[in-house]
């Protein structure tokens, strides 16, 4: 790390440990403050989920009581199941269609419409969530009036749509790192296009698909804005339920729910991180 000083050390005392060209005064301190800032609120939140008292500020001893009460809360149960259902559906469907789209748009010479497809798929990343939410609200309201259908379908399709780019990106990244010569080798060894896909492309692409699906799942699970605008009555997901609760006096039960939620997200992201790292 400590490279020899290219500048003549004028004051031997100051440069005593060698001159590190990478060092910038104060940067490490600011970085540490940053990490502290990022984690302190989260850790506080988790800590108070174990509070025995009803306060989220005064520590009254350790207890599991808020986890128990959250577990027993029918509304929470209901919202959790709905959240997981939507996330699972959106993750699976968006990953499947994103995989197909990624296969179609990578490792090719430019073809008419390629840029258009890119732009189309990445569009949800460019538009503010509130705008997409409003647009869906208007559109689905019209459909609701026309068909009378008010089921979960609206949330399912909305989540699937905004999950597509998140599923698409890691799959595409993986595909682009995959050498076409492997598929050529398979074709050279008498594998038909289908068998090539089944025995070579798919197994090699699998970590990317898994990562994309994981990401889509987390993104769907986390969504507040679009869900809040699209949901019909009694279709709360866990985040919209929590958003509603924040208007009231908050008990550590919210901390408990949040902590579980955090744990799920962190596990998923960790898996995603490991999957992505493996390829290099």
């Amino acid at each position: 790390m400590a490279e020899a000083a290219p500048v003549k050390p004028t004051t031997p005392k100051k440069w005593g440990r060698g001159f590190d060209v990478r060092k910038q005064t104060g940067f490490t301190t600011i970085a540490m403050i940053c990490f502290l800032m990022l984690y302190a609120p989260i850790l506080t939140l988790v800590a108070y989920s174990f509070n025995a008292g009803t306060s989220v500020a005064i520590w009254e001893g350790f207890s599991w009581r808020w986890y128990e009460s959250a577990w027993a809360n029918v509304q929470v149960q209901d919202a959790s199941i709905r959240s997981l259902t939507i996330a699972a559906f959106a993750a699976v469907v968006s990953t499947v269609v994103a995989t197909m789209a990624a296969l179609a748009t990578t490792r090719t010479k430019p073809f008419p419409g390629l840029t258009f497809i890119y732009a189309f798929i990445n569009q949800p990343l460019m538009v503010p969530e509130i705008v997409t939410g409003v647009a869906l609200l208007i559109f689905f309201a019209a459909i609701k009036v026309a068909t009378g259908y008010t089921g979960l379908g609206y949330l399912l399709i909305a989540h699937t749509a905004f999950c597509i780019p998140f599923a698409y990106l890691p799959i595409r990244a993986r595909l682009e790192n995959m050498d076409l010569s492997l598929e050529r080798a398979a074709a050279d060894l008498y594998a038909t296009p289908f068998k090539t896909f089944r025995h070579v492309t798919l197994p090699l692409l699998w970590p990317g698909i898994l990562a994309g699906g994981m990401l889509a799942f987390v993104i769907s699970l986390d969504d507040v804005v679009i869900t809040e605008l699209v949901k019909s009555g009694g279709q709360d997901t866990l985040p919209t339920y929590m958003l509603g609760q924040l208007r009231r006096i908050v008990t550590p039960e919210m901390n408990a729910i949040s902590s579980v939620f955090l744990a799920i997200s962190i596990v998923m992201v960790t898996i995603f991180f490991l999957l992505n790292r493996k390829k290099t």
């Binding site: 050498d179 080798a185 074709a187 038909t192």
Partner: peptide, 20 residues
């Protein structure tokens, strides 16, 4: 004819061995 219908095999410059 596509490659999988030709009785010819190739040793690729990059070897193209299946990593899985």
């Amino acid at each position: 004819l596509p490659p999988f219908k030709r009785h010819v095999n190739t040793v690729f410059q990059s070897y193209a061995l299946f990593p899985h």
